[in-house]
């Protein structure tokens, strides 16, 4: 049986951003389970555990100590059991080329952290719902690209 909630993980070294993130999902009327990690290394350690159930969506901040978002992304893309995770890059800003580069490396979603809580709420809800569509409608995840 599929679990009846969406499992979401966020790796971000910024405390405020983690707070906004969890606040959003508390306010959204979607059944979610949110885990957060302070850096890329913590995240990868968790994911690499045998007993870990893979999340549906993984949000990665790009600038993180110890292991950057890009490093996590490339690592995850090389591990078979993690291939089903939808990966969202969750970053302050980047140039068009950098964004395209993360997509090429295998990211599915790129979210520029918005400058208001309402926008953030809207963006995250869109990500989750579209991802849910992909998840529930057998859409080709290889072609799943979303930029907000």
């Amino acid at each position: 049986m599929q679990p009846n909630y969406i499992h979401i993980i966020l790796a971000d070294d910024d405390e405020d951003d983690r707070l906004f993130f969890t606040d959003v999902f508390e306010e959204l009327k979607i059944n979610t389970k949110v885990n957060t990690f302070n850096d890329g290394e913590d995240l990868m350690n968790y994911l690499n555990k045998v007993e870990t159930i893979m999340p549906n969506v993984l949000f990665l901040d790009l600038n993180m100590p110890k292991k950057s978002g890009i490093e996590c992304l490339t690592e995850i893309k090389g591990i078979h059991k993690m291939s089903e995770i939808a990966i969202a890059i969750y970053s302050t800003s980047a140039s068009e080329e950098d964004i395209e580069q993360t997509f090429v490396l295998g990211a599915n979603i790129y979210i520029k952290k918005p400058d208001s809580f309402e926008k953030l709420k809207k963006a995250l809800s869109e990500v989750v719902s579209i991802n849910w569509q992909y998840h529930t409608n057998n859409l080709n995840k290889d072609n799943f690209l979303l930029r907000l």
């Binding site: 989750v128 719902s129 849910w132 569509q133 529930t136 859409l139 080709n140 072609n143």
Partner: peptide
């Protein structure tokens, strides 16, 4: 049930089909 509208779903499906055709 789906947290999204029929209209939205149609668009997603159409874009999905467009992706297939593009690739």
């Amino acid at each position: 049930v789906t947290y999204s509208s029929i209209k939205n779903f149609i668009i997603i499906q159409k874009i999905e089909y467009a992706k297939q055709l593009i690739l």
